[in-house]
Each structure stands twice: as C-alpha cells, then as structure tokens.
C-alpha cells in the first residue's frame, strides 16, 4: 500500500531521476521548463494525485506539462517531424484506487475486516470459531485420518458453497438450509468415489464422521446468513475456510498420533507414547482446548499489536 500510494504521488523532479529516464534526448532548457510545469501543475491541482505514472515529472492535466515537453523532445530524436501543437485533451477520469484509510476508525474497521477474512489463523473456523469439532475431536486421531478428512473437506467445502450459492441465486435465496444440505449430500457422491479410489478401505477408519460432513456447520454454516454472497465470494471464502479447516485438522491429527503412539504417519518419533488418552474423544476435547488456548493467546497478542500500530499511526490525525 505504501509503495502504491507513493507511486501515484506527483514526484519532485530531481536531476538524478530525470537522467535515468531521458538522458540523451532532453536539453537542460527543456528539463527546466518541464520542472517548472510540474511544480505549477502540482500547486494547481493541490492534492489531486496524478493518474499517469509513466512520466517522471507527473501530471496529466491540460496545458504544457512535463510529459508533453518530454514527448516533444523525443519526437525529433526519433526522426519524426515535430508535431503541431496537439489539441488539448480532456483530463482522463481518475482511476479508482485503494486509498489509505483517512481516520483511525476507518483503519480499525479495515483491520477487523482483515482479521475476519483471515480464516487460516486469526479467524480459524475450528480453533477460533468452534466449527467442525466432531470430526476433529473424534475422527482425527492420526495423521492419516487427518489427511483423509482434509481431502474430504477439500472436495466438499468449496464446491458445496459455490453450488448452494448458485442455486440460491436461482431460487431467490429461499429454502437455504435445504439447498445447502442437499448440495453437500449430492457432492458427497463423487467425493466419496474419489476418496475411495484414493484411500480404499482405510476410509472406514473415519466411520460416521465422513458422511456427517454434509451437515457439519463448517460446511453449511453459511445457510444461516440472510445475505446472499456472489459465486466469486463463495469460492474465495470457501477456499479460505478449507485452508483453515485443513490446517487445524492436520495439526490436531499429527499431535494426537504423536502423543498417543509416539509416531507421525507411522514413523516413530518418540520412544514412548506420552499420552495414550489423546486417541480417545476425551483426549481430543482436552487437547483441542489446550491448542485453542495457546492459539488464541498468540492470535490475540498479534491483534493487540496491530491495534496499537493503528493507534500509533493515526494518533496525530485524530
């Protein structure tokens, strides 16, 4: 953001900058003229940032600007006839650009939006929001189970959200719960076939926790929202949620296998099993609770740091 905004600012013409762009083509008189034009243009437009970022001297308004001076200097050098004075063109419409928030409240709102959209860490669906707990607590007892759940989530979560949103657009956003659940149940059919091809009978280790993914809140939570998102948004958020879910499932699965058996993916890491209870649902609840506590502590510290940063940056403007 910082670089982008600087890029659009009218820059002060220094000899070093001008040399880098148009070294042999411009006479010192032309350069001085261009510099004067740029300064004049900057003072006239007072805060109106220039849309044209190609010229070193900035400014695209009418009149004899630095750009036109440079163009005039370039043409004879390229063997062209010097063009007659070009008719004045209307100023180009300003490009919509992402501006820095102008107030602390705006910056904080932007920060919260960013935190809300950060499904991988700060707003993880499992660890921060408590969604998808059943498969994580009971079924993700090993890295292999976690991997199967991750692939299942990958095949189900985003496609369900996209399909359900597309259908909701057609039905006028009615029957949302039925639409979401049936979208998931229909997509479960090809997903199961793919999973069976990939993992074979190992899939039985997930038991009922594979089919219940179709009603798992992490997949169909959106059915409760009244506002209908676009298909693109559904796709983006679905992918974000999938990444967050997979991270949590995989972390918990590996940790539980390590604690319960001293292995990860069957490879021995520890000589003894430090906590055999970790493979039971009770151990899953407690372990996930401890992981969530530390995760929350780190995430809250980071959010606090970002909030302080916003306060520092906007302290003068308030």
């Amino acid at each position: 953001m910082q670089n982008g905004s600087n890029k659009n600012k009218p820059r002060r013409a220094t000899p070093e900058q001008s040399q880098t762009v148009i070294i042999p083509k411009i006479t010192p008189e032309m350069m001085a003229q261009a510099r004067r034009d740029a300064v004049q243009h900057t003072s006239n437009t007072a805060g109106n940032t220039a849309g044209n970022t190609t010229g070193t001297f900035g400014g695209t308004g009418g009149g004899n600007t630095g750009d036109t001076t440079i163009q005039q200097a370039k043409r004879p050098a390229a063997g062209e006839k010097p063009a007659e004075k070009a008719p004045e063109q209307p100023p180009k419409p300003r490009q919509p650009e992402k501006e820095k928030p102008s107030s602390q409240a705006q910056a904080q709102a932007e920060l919260w939006r960013w935190i809300h959209d950060n499904h991988l860490w700060l707003n993880n669906p499992v660890i921060m929001r408590g969604l998808g707990l059943a498969p994580v607590v009971v079924a993700a007892v090993s890295a292999q189970s976690a991997l199967m759940l991750c692939v299942a989530a990958l095949l189900l979560l985003t496609p369900t959200r996209v399909l359900a949103v597309a259908v909701c657009h057609l039905t006028g956003n009615r029957f949302r719960p039925v639409t979401y659940c049936y979208a998931a149940a229909l997509l479960y059919i090809p997903a199961y076939i793919v999973l069976y091809r990939l993992f074979g009978v190992d899939l039985a280790a997930l038991g009922i926790y594979l089919p219940i993914l179709v009603v798992e809140p992490v997949i169909i939570k959106r059915m409760e929202a009244d506002t209908l998102e676009t298909v693109g948004e559904a796709f983006r958020r679905g992918l974000n949620n999938t990444a967050g879910l997979c991270l949590a499932v995989f972390l918990v699965g590996c940790l539980r296998e390590l604690l319960a058996a001293g292995t990860v993916f069957g490879a021995r890491i520890l000589n003894a099993a430090p906590l055999p209870l970790a493979s039971e649902p009770a151990g899953g609840f407690i372990l996930l609770g401890v992981v969530a506590a530390f995760w929350t502590a780190i995430a809250n510290s980071y959010v606090h740091y970002k909030q302080q940063e916003v306060k520092r940056n906007y302290a003068e403007r308030r």
Partner: peptide, 13 residues
C-alpha cells in the same frame, strides 16, 4: 471456547 472444550473433555473422560 478453550475452557468449554476442556470442560466437556473432563465430562467425557
């Protein structure tokens, strides 16, 4: 959430 999960875990245990 963490305390709730640990609480349910103890009951489950």
């Amino acid at each position: 959430l963490p305390s709730s999960l640990i609480y349910v875990g103890i009951l489950s245990l």
